[in-house]
Design a protein around this nucleic acid. Structure first.
Lengths: 191, 191
DNA sequence: GTCTATAGGTGGATAGAC
DNA sequence: GTCTATCCACCTATAGAC
């Protein structure tokens, strides 16, 4: 892994843990093993490096979700697989946490991947839910778009509650609650 | 409103908007109209003032929720009132956003009101849901504790999604989705 | 109680040797 | 491409006059 790559990966980890404001160029350089000032050769500055890091995290999130949404099983099974995927609850979401970072949201370039990621996620999940409704697996009273937004919100909010409690189990409980609510709308358990 | 009070209110607003790391003593002093250095007479430092501000925000959140939970109507109606309460979605939750602030979560004193607020909220909401189950308003397949955690998560995550989209309507959609999911478990609409 | 002055540390970035 | 040295602005806090 070359220096440029190490800088991006270090930035990703630090942004995840400390946020944009809490991450200094010096900290990124030290973690990456690059010398002081070296990152300015590969990137124009902190925002430029952050953009590379954020874009990569957003792409990863999207790829993993897409693999689950387009995987095997009925629509509800795929949604369940997505919701139940093991996540580092206390660490939170590397993309979602950026919404609380003013410097990120104030910069159109940095904000864009965050906005696009969740727009895609909600739309894509709504599509899977619409499939479920069309196939009769979910009852037709459910609005796919609103339900999708609520389910994604459960994950993002689950992180918040887990961090507040200092207990990853709270995240799992939020997911359990969401699946319990969804279960009341499942009509058939076709395999 | 005396100087001490203005300092607390200014800190509350700035913490809400910029978070702990993004809020400087200087900014608090300027917003409050107090002169540079004046806050050190009333508070030992930034953490001490932040504790006063966070505690007040936490108390407010709790009082408003309690008023709705113990208000008129059936349990499900009260939960609906709580979920549908008008909120400044793009501003987010003044307490929940602190969970993403490392300096807050790393300090036991600052962390405590955050932890206690959400522990109380989840427990209190679970109690109202348990009432609903006991009275037959909600079907008995729902786990009150897990459902409560999921519903609170929808609100917290709704803020995240609304900020990501730059659109308060997304928050409302998340709440709509949660109420739609809950509706499938309501047995009677007793008044 | 409130103000000005000030200090040590860090953040983000640049210059220029190698 | 990488390193050291350096810069200015800001953050947090203290000292001490009024």
């Amino acid at each position: 892994m070359d220096t440029r790559e190490r800088l991006i990966e270090s930035a990703r980890e630090l942004l995840w843990e400390f946020g944009y404001v809490g991450t200094s160029p010096k900290a990124i350089q030290q973690r990456s093993g690059a010398g002081q000032g070296s990152m300015y050769h590969h990137f124009r500055g902190k925002p430029d490096l952050a953009l590379a890091a954020i874009t990569r995290s957003a792409d990863e999130l999207r790829d993993r979700a897409e693999a689950e949404f387009s995987g095997p099983g009925t629509p509800v099974q795929r949604v369940t697989t997505y919701l139940r995927r093991e996540r580092d609850a206390l660490r939170g979401c590397p993309v979602g946490r950026l919404t609380q970072d003013r410097d990120v949201m104030a910069d159109p370039a940095l904000r864009r991947p965050v906005e696009e990621t969740f727009a895609w996620l909600r739309t894509r999940l709504a599509g899977v839910l619409a499939e479920a409704v069309a196939e009769g697996e979910l009852d037709a009273t459910l609005d796919p778009a609103a339900t999708a937004t609520a389910l994604v919100a459960v994950l993002q909010g689950g992180y918040v509650l887990a961090r507040a409690a200092g207990d990853a189990e709270v995240y799992a409980q939020a997911v359990d609650g969401a699946l319990g609510l969804l279960a009341g709308h499942v009509r058939s358990t076709a395999t």
